[in-house]
Simulated assay, not measured.
Amino acid sequence: MMRLNLLPWRERQRRSMLRRFQWMLLGSAILALCCVMLIDQLARQRAQQQATSNASHQSALALLGKQLEQHTDVRADHDATQAQVAALARLRADQGVLPALLADVEAALPAGLQLTELTLAHGRLHVTGVAASGAVVAQFMRDLERSAVLQGLALKHVKHLPSGDEFVLTARVSAFWS
């Protein structure tokens, strides 16, 4: 029988497979390197887009911040104006209180009574005067109690003098500014 030597053929086959494996390994490495570079490039591009987007958002936020400051200033001015309008409305509402108060005091003055001092402070009225008798003071107090402007009328003291009775009355003025 004839014997064939297959060693050289197997050796060539083995080298050929080794070369093919090396080329495939080299191709895989190059392909993997290309994939990594592509992914890196996409990641850098995405990061750049994100930075651009963040910069535009920051500029929009800065613009909104300026508008918010202006809005806050306008709101503060509006609140101050509203407070002034409310104060003016209170003053306008209280505008008739002083003439009404003086008219009520004048209408309540009986004969034989003389006012020496009339003080209005912090919504409180202090009346000092001299009367011919205690009955005149009582009549004056009854007439003042009918006033729509005065509340809580109180006689603080009466002092008997040779010229008459000196008295001090206090009352709270309703709807008066403070």
Rank of each mutant, 00 (worst) to 15 (best):
P162D: 14
H71C: 08
L4T: 14
H71V: 08
L109C: 03
A51S: 09
A47R: 04
A148W: 05
L115Q: 05
A135L: 11
R92M: 08
L102N: 09
K156G: 12
L18P: 04
D79E: 12
R3L: 09
L109R: 12
E69Q: 12
Q49H: 11
S16R: 15
Q114E: 13
A89T: 08
L113G: 00
V173H: 00
L115H: 02
L161Y: 08
S28Y: 04
A47Q: 09
W23G: 06
L120Y: 02
A29K: 10
V127Y: 04
L102R: 05
D143M: 03
D104G: 03
A100C: 03
V136Y: 00
P99I: 00
Q84Y: 05
L38S: 04
V74E: 15
F176C: 02
L125H: 03
G129R: 02
A47H: 02
A62I: 10
A76W: 01
L153E: 04
S56R: 10
K156T: 14
R20S: 07
T119K: 05
T119D: 11
L169F: 09
S163W: 07
Q58K: 04
P8I: 06
I39D: 09
Q139L: 10
V74R: 15
H71I: 11
V36L: 12
R90P: 07
S174K: 10
Q41V: 03
M17H: 13
D143W: 00
Q58V: 00
A51T: 00
M141G: 01
L144Q: 02
R44N: 08
A175Y: 02
L118F: 13
L7K: 03
L109N: 05
L42M: 13
Q58L: 09
Q151H: 07
A131Q: 08
V137Q: 06
G112L: 09
G65Q: 14
A132M: 07
E145V: 07
H78S: 10
S28A: 14
A107E: 04
V130W: 01
E69M: 02
H57E: 14
V168F: 05
D143V: 01
L42K: 12
S147M: 04
Q13A: 14
G152F: 02
L115C: 03
H126E: 11
M141K: 08
T72G: 01
G134M: 09
Q67N: 10
M24H: 04
L18H: 07
K159A: 11
Q41P: 02
M141N: 05
A175W: 00
A103T: 11
G27P: 00
I30K: 05
E166H: 10
F176A: 08
V97A: 00
W9E: 15
V158W: 13
D143S: 09
F140W: 03
R142H: 01
S133M: 00
Q48Y: 01
M141W: 00
F176P: 01
H57K: 10
R19D: 15
R44S: 12
L113S: 01
S53L: 15
G27Q: 06
T128H: 07
G27W: 06
S178L: 13
R15H: 12
R19L: 15
R124S: 10
M24W: 11
L155D: 03
L115M: 05
Q50C: 07
E11C: 06
A131L: 11
L153F: 08
I39H: 02
A171T: 13
Q50M: 09
R90S: 07
A132I: 08
L26M: 13
S178G: 14
V97W: 00
